[in-house]
């Protein structure tokens, strides 16, 4: 059984698509046997609101972030996140959820140090596991 790192206990999913959120949670819980907490937000603004109003110890270990969303999209979320992240002591990684992304988009996203990787939809649990493993923070 593939299991997610035990140190991970908080995950934030920001995606406007209900089915996509449902599947992401399913992958974490059913496929990866994740027992921790999952918070789901349907746009970037709700994600920012959640982060501001959450106590330090409940902050997510990583965020699965969709790009195209109403009200506040993925890029705008990262911009806002950069403004508030210094008030957290916990380092929060961001994994981008993408439908096929062009190299130019990727270069843009790569300029954000918070973004630690890309996941193509529907997310593959092995790919997610690889991202977590390659991210030194979780070692």
């Amino acid at each position: 059984m593939i299991t997610i790192d035990n140190n991970i206990s908080n995950i934030l999913i920001i995606d406007d698509d209900e089915f996509s959120r449902m599947y992401n949670e399913f992958t974490l819980r059913d496929t990866m046997n994740y027992k921790g907490f999952v918070k789901m937000c349907s746009n970037g603004q709700l994600g920012i609101d959640y982060l501001i109003n959450t106590i330090e110890q409940d902050l997510p270990d990583f965020i699965l972030l969709d790009i195209n969303m109403p009200i506040m999209n993925g890029f705008e979320f990262i911009e806002e996140f950069q403004k508030i992240k210094n008030s957290f002591t916990k380092e929060i990684s961001i994994f981008m959820l993408t439908s096929s992304v062009s190299q130019r988009d990727k270069s843009t996203i790569n300029q954000y140090p918070e973004v630690k990787g890309f996941l193509s939809k529907p997310i593959d649990h092995i790919a997610l596991l690889n991202l977590i493993e390659n991210n030194s923070k979780f070692e």
Binding site: F19, S20, M22, Y23, F26, D30, P122
Partner: peptide
């Protein structure tokens, strides 16, 4: 094709969940 992709991805996701 861009707009078709999201629902197609969802169908695939739901099928994977169904398989469980």
């Amino acid at each position: 094709t861009h707009d078709l992709r999201a629902p197609a991805v969802n169908i695939k996701s739901m099928l994977i969940m169904l398989s469980k």
